[in-house]
Design a protein around this nucleic acid. Structure first.
Lengths: 318, 318
DNA sequence: CTGAAAGCGCTTACAG
DNA sequence: CTGAAAGCGCTTACAG
């Protein structure tokens, strides 16, 4: 590879002079600068190596993006895609690159502990000036490793931990309001649909122990919000059916909706913890020729673009 | 910031010994290694700095991803999202990070030349071991800058340039076959819908000069394929109406479809250069109560997931 | 305006 | 197994 040293030798100047030609044109006579750049071009020198520059400057011009626990999975969630779009837009303006940390779900792995160790290593190894963490489960080692580096870090939605800035909505209050909305309409036979309580690949009916052990911070807060509202209305929390989809993709949400509808045919309302689930519920109800909201009410969460198009009641509303 | 030197001093060993503690455990006695790691932990040393390591090793463990000319825009295109998912999946397996290069469209900028210069600079400045380029316009300076660095580079779909590996389908032949499919059904009054011929923000009816000057390599190839088939069938190319949407988003495609349908009410078939356009066409025809394929035929391109769900004829077929 | 020194944090070949 | 040297490619403060 061609380096500044090679260019300097060929141009008959010192190596720092070449650096000045690129970074501080005012420190060189126009004549010398031109000669240096001409020689550099002749040698196919692509300009200062960013790694050398990064080491010397102490910053690299990139932000690490830690998104859910698997990127392919993340793209299934419209709320995530919207966030990515927003971050990308600002990144463009600031000329900052985004480095995606591929953190696949440890749950599906042969050896989860090994996966988490390797993911922590990747956070430690990424060449970035800071991190944005989006909706990761509690105690994720990659987050701990990122925070340990002492770089500026913003956590969006979850986990809520010490260190780093936090940005998110009051999930608990919002969920409580969503439940209160249904209760206010007179509903008493209410079922709950959750994306995922913990990133361990489990799906199906979630009993009380499962609900309490949720490692996904956002899901846990929303569950608590639902619970508070339903209890305050005199309902027994353990009798409220809850189904966990285990993912955002179509087959996971489809199965969850069907499981809830099949097991609880007498529901009058469904609390869906995300709009993706709520929209899937609407589709399934239509397929079963069950009228919404005449026979059953559905409320979502997130306010994704498709929700408004489908006429869904969602929360927080725009 | 804590460095190896600090740890070494505190542990009473040389700085390289600290490096060995992390990278070559076999080179140290267990006792010394443990002491070093304990001291490191006490000092909150986050482990070897990746920039220093990258400089010394000559590689950083990241691949630069150059996607269309704007990331927010890219997420509107399901074909792009599918590609990103695939790359992310492999990246996870290989423990390679993906660095997204935010290349907003120069067309919308105050000073396009300035934007292209800055984008080229970003390609040169990114800390990566190689590049994946996806569907960028011809002569994009960021691509040239990436190739100039001499790093391994794979170009997907476009541009077709010297240097770097190429991966793509035969757009021209596929487009020709799509047109021949319509011609084989007996259609003669055919209209064409294109996403975008050049990344300059233009939209509307595309005359012959506009068609020929296309800077988007994929669009140009598809146009040529359509042209070849239609001419071979004895149709006059300049009389074939073509509308360019200028983007993938809903309002752009909606306007393009309406423009074509309003201007050419007697079409019997529509050649859509992407499925996003074809799907939008289906929606608009339904809104106008025009039956497909009884009154008008529509063929797409890309085979995105939604296409099959909509019963669209698309190309290349699965 | 020009040049040479120092050093960013690290890895690895080498000598002991 | 342990230690000290060299050097990865660059930027910047400093002396001339």
């Amino acid at each position: 590879m061609v380096t500044m040293k090679d260019v300097a030798r060929a141009a008959g100047v010192s190596q720092p002079a070449v650096s000045y030609a690129y970074n501080r044109p005012d420190q060189l006579s126009a004549e010398v600068r031109e000669r240096i750049l001409r020689v550099a071009s002749d040698l196919n020198y692509p300009g200062p190596d960013p790694v050398g520059r990064g080491l010397r400057r102490g910053s690299v011009g990139a932000i690490g993006l830690m998104v859910t626990d698997s990127l392919p999975y993340a793209f299934d969630d419209p709320a995530t895609v919207q966030l990515l779009r927003g971050i990308a837009e600002i990144g463009e303006m600031a000329e900052v690159m985004l480095t995606l940390l591929p953190l696949r779900s440890a749950a599906e792995a042969e050896d989860p502990a090994d996966v988490e160790t390797r993911q922590a290593k990747m956070s430690g190894d990424s060449l970035v000036d800071g991190f944005i963490v989006y909706s990761l489960p509690d105690r994720h080692r990659a987050v701990e490793a990122a925070l340990a580096r002492g770089l500026p870090t913003v956590i969006v939605d979850a986990p809520r931990v010490q260190g780093g800035s936090y940005l998110g909505i009051r999930d608990r209050q919002a969920a409580r309001q969503a439940a209160e909305h249904l209760l206010g309409l007179g509903h008493r036979r209410i079922g709950v649909l959750m994306d995922r309580l913990s990133p361990d690949g489990r799906s199906g009916i979630a009993d009380d122990a499962r609900r309490r052990s949720a490692r996904d911070g956002v899901a846990r807060e929303r569950v608590i919000g639902y619970q508070q509202a339903l209890r305050a209305a005199g309902l027994t929390w353990r009798d409220i059916p809850m189904v966990e989809a285990g993912g955002f993709d179509k087959s996971a949400t489809e199965q969850a909706v069907n499981l809830l509808l099949d097991n609880c045919p007498d529901l009058s309302a469904i609390l869906a913890s995300t709009d993706v689930l709520a929209l899937q519920t609407l589709r399934e109800l239509q397929a079963r020729a069950i009228r919404v909201p005449d026979e059953i009410s559905v409320i979502g969460f997130d306010d994704v673009p498709d929700a408004a198009a489908a006429g869904l009641t969602t929360w927080p509303s725009r």
